[in-house]
Design a binder for these strands. Structure first.
Length: 283
DNA sequence: ACCCAGGTGGCTT
DNA sequence: AAGCCACATGGG
């Protein structure tokens, strides 16, 4: 059964579906249907999402419309966020113009933890392949949706009960051990709620979570918008645009904290997307 | 064959 | 604190 819900919003110019799902924050919205719509999964439901002009249309296998609107951060005022960022640092102008429709999605914490552990020293197409394989093998079946069987992201408890041999097919390499250990801790210890510093402290003790992955988890999993993940692309853009030494991540973090403040996560995403899409060449 | 990818852990200065 | 290097996998 597929439910259709159309949502008409009169000032949705700060939204672009393609940019939102392809900017590198999520790894499972890869099924582009040829008309600009995408199919993906959130929790235990699948959706086909279309966006054109000021209308966003959800065809969903379940869940409330509100949940899907929340997932894509539709209601937030990104015009205001972008104005503030450009005011704080005019150098962001081009990157923001380029990625003006990006929204920072509201993703599931465990999915973000697992995904970004897998992401380390890996490239995005391959990360997506690994995660999809993981979902097909260990995720609960949602059922057929637009001609394909869709799967949930595997529960942490399922991964926690896996051996490294169980996961061999997924080809995570040395990250397999990190993923299983993370699942075990996540299931047995849980995470501190509410306090971002306590959360950082707890997650930083997971093996396989270093500063970069930690910041991605804080940003995408805990919605700590002050987080500023520094990966190879951000290193390049911070070098080229701001003159930082490429391994001066501490300097980059400090710059973000001082100039972007509580909006650092948005700034990072505009910069990352801008630079990665241009292959590091920004005239 | 080499280099790279949304890096990190561990060991050596 | 800072500088190496191995780590598993696949694509260019």
């Amino acid at each position: 059964m597929i439910y259709t819900s159309k949502l008409e919003l009169d000032d949705l110019k700060d939204f672009d579906l393609k940019q939102t799902v392809e900017c590198g924050q999520c790894f499972r919205w890869n099924d582009e249907m040829g008309d600009g719509s995408y199919i993906g999964v959130c929790g235990k439901y699948a959706a086909r999402v279309k966006y054109h002009y000021e209308i966003i249309e959800f065809e969903i296998s379940g869940g409330s419309l509100g949940r899907w609107v929340d997932y894509f951060d539709i209601v937030a005022d990104y015009g205001e966020i972008k104005r503030k960022l450009i005011e704080r640092d005019p150098k962001l102008q081009d990157a923001i113009e380029f990625g003006k429709g990006i929204r920072i999605m509201h993703q599931d914490m465990w999915e973000v933890i697992a995904s970004f552990i897998i992401s380390q020293n890996n490239n995005i197409p391959r990360i997506k392949g690994c995660i999809e394989a993981l979902c097909e093998k260990f995720g609960e079946e949602i059922g057929d949706f637009y001609g394909k069987v869709r799967y949930m992201f595997p529960e942490a408890s399922v991964i926690a009960n896996c051996t490294e041999e169980d996961l061999a097919d997924i080809k995570l390499g040395y990250r397999t051990e990190y993923l299983i250990e993370a699942a075990k801790r996540y299931v047995s210890e849980g995470l501190p709620a509410g306090d971002m510093d306590a959360l950082r402290e707890t997650l930083s003790q997971y093996k396989g979570i270093g500063p970069k992955v930690l910041n991605c988890i804080m940003l995408f999993g805990a919605r700590d918008l002050s987080a500023f993940p520094v990966d190879v692309w951000v290193k390049r853009v911070m070098h080229d645009m701001y003159g930082f030494d490429e391994n001066d991540t501490a300097g980059m973090q400090k710059y973000a904290a001082e100039h972007f403040g509580e909006l650092s996560g948005y700034a990072q995403q505009y910069l990352f997307y801008y630079y990665r899409e241009h292959g590091g060449e920004v005239e």
